[in-house]
């Protein structure tokens, strides 16, 4: 164990001990924060997966990914508005139908958007100097944010509260207030992540993706269609980000055009924390960072949360660049 690893574990351990102390002293407050954190973390995990998959396969920080997530939420707002009208009843069948339409619509649309971005902005630069795709990624991020800005201006967009809510759909267990949507977010994310895991491990395309991430040239020699595999990676990443956007909208009911910048960076931090390129790592990292953010909001103050999160980002890279679960690092 190196000095860096040691420092990393000492810091993690300190954080855990402090939190455990809180848990003992104020158990119900702690549990309440835990619920928020899990819900946030589930969404970060969904977005982080897209970052980690793309980085794993073409070593690009896809800055536009956070904005694809936001665009998913925007599309969701529009589609829901169309199908559910303005009904925000606590529970209705039409809301359920709207949800069933919104999820696939937003996800597929984002998949298409992300494939287009890859095709137009990244593929032509695959062999260019490193900086070039990075700048187009930032440009694409600005472009998407610009589109949403034109759409809604600087104003908050309301996302209808379609999930069952109100009396009968929440409960208090041991002083902890839990709503239906808290459970929904975590369960939906868990289902999506499991589907992804099955896909990556079982399907032919999933195997091709793993092989390409390992060694692109060798995969090409083995007859894997690299362009298609990379496009598929962007597509799947965007499916998850789109779903994340819809879920975020349903959970918070309010979005702005620049939501993706901050959320994207936090999700990216999650991916780094879990070990960038590592898919289970991203899911785990998302949960950990979501919890960290919630605890930081509650115990340190929300204005410090950003400092804490990016402090973690720097700390991880300095002390343990392979992240929590380790990444594929070629020996130089």
């Amino acid at each position: 164990m190196s000095v860096g690893d040691f420092g990393f574990f000492v810091i993690c351990l300190t954080a855990i001990v402090l939190l455990a102390a809180q848990a003992v002293v104020h158990p119900s407050e702690f549990a309440q924060i835990l619920v928020f954190g899990l819900a946030d973390g589930a969404i970060y995990a969904l977005v982080a997966l897209g970052y980690t998959m793309v980085y794993g396969i073409i070593e690009l920080i896809n800055f536009a990914h956070g904005d694809v997530f936001t665009l998913g939420a925007y599309v969701a707002a529009a589609v829901m508005g169309f199908f559910a009208g303005t009904s925000e009843d606590t529970f209705s069948v039409s809301n359920l139908v709207a949800l069933l339409v919104t999820f696939p619509a937003a996800m597929l649309l984002m998949g298409a958007v992300n494939i287009t971005i890859e095709r137009v902005a990244y593929r032509p630069l695959r062999n260019a100097p490193r900086l070039a795709p990075l700048i187009t990624a930032i440009g694409m991020s600005f472009l998407l944010e610009g589109i949403m800005f034109v759409w809604s201006g600087p104003f908050t967009v309301h996302v209808p509260d379609l999930l069952p809510h109100g009396p009968g759909f929440n409960t208090t267990i041991g002083g902890v207030f839990i709503e239906f949507k808290d459970v929904f977010v975590v369960v939906a994310a868990a289902i999506l992540v499991s589907l992804l895991a099955v896909f990556i491990n079982r399907s032919k395309l999933g195997k091709a993706m793993r092989a390409t991430a390992q060694d692109r040239d060798a995969s090409q020699l083995m007859g894997i269609n690299i362009n298609r595999t990379i496009a598929a990676t962007f597509f799947i990443g965007a499916l998850l980000a789109g779903a994340g956007g819809v879920i975020w909208g349903l959970y918070f009911n309010a979005i702005t055009y620049n939501l993706g910048f901050r959320t994207g960076l936090v999700a990216f931090t999650s991916a780094v924390f879990g070990g960038i390129g590592n898919i289970p790592g991203a899911a785990l990292g998302g949960m950990v960072i979501g919890l960290t953010a919630a605890f930081s909001d509650a115990y340190i103050g929300s204005k410090w949360t950003q400092v804490v999160i990016f402090g973690i980002l720097i700390g991880v890279l300095v002390f343990r660049p392979t992240g929590l679960l380790g990444m594929r690092v070629p020996e130089k």
Binding site: L125, A132, I135, I138, M140, F142, L143, G146, V150
Partner: peptide, 29 residues
Amino acid sequence: WPGLSELAQRLQFLLYGLILVLMMLLRPQ
């Protein structure tokens, strides 16, 4: 419709992004 001037105001960010992308695609060096 936010009005032309307001629209153009809002378009700035989008255009900046577009210029970045085009610039890199056309002259990566």
